[in-house]
Amino acid sequence: MLKASKKEEKRFANMQEKRKPPVPLGSNLIRAFITGGLICVVGQAIMEILKMLGIPPDGAAGPTAAILIVISALLTGFGVYDDIGRFGGMGAALPITGFANAIVSPAMEFKREGFVLGLGARMFTVAGPVLVYGLVTSTVVGFFYYLLKG
């Protein structure tokens, strides 16, 4: 076996499956639930405050997201958000705060490779795909809406 055949690969994969440390699924899910839930509660609180300040309810989601982005960016700068991510997994990555972390962390990291091709270009390593696929999917959805609306 140098490059394993399909059969050898399978045999090794079986052996490996037996020795693999189990994924701590239960605790991962609980921590994701708590982290994701709490970030959304913070979002809800910001939204309620905005409403009290007179922003119409259906216009509050955007500014709420913006404020969360600012908070997450600061936490990333202070080196806290990666710890939240280590604890909460997708609970930290899935909210808009995770999107902000995905922009801020490479911007900070690759500043050392220059302000244009480092900071500027690498900022979108993870956030770029999110924007690309969000836009592509929503445009397709919008196209069908337009057709069906007739």
């Binding site: 701590p24 997994g89 930290a92 490479p106 390593t125 993870v126």
Partner: peptide
């Protein structure tokens, strides 16, 4: 990390392996 995986401040959970 920055060469092979993600930026060091990226909120990523590493698997047990």
């Amino acid at each position: 990390e920055r060469q092979f995986r993600f930026p060091t401040e990226f909120a990523n959970q590493r698997p047990m392996t």
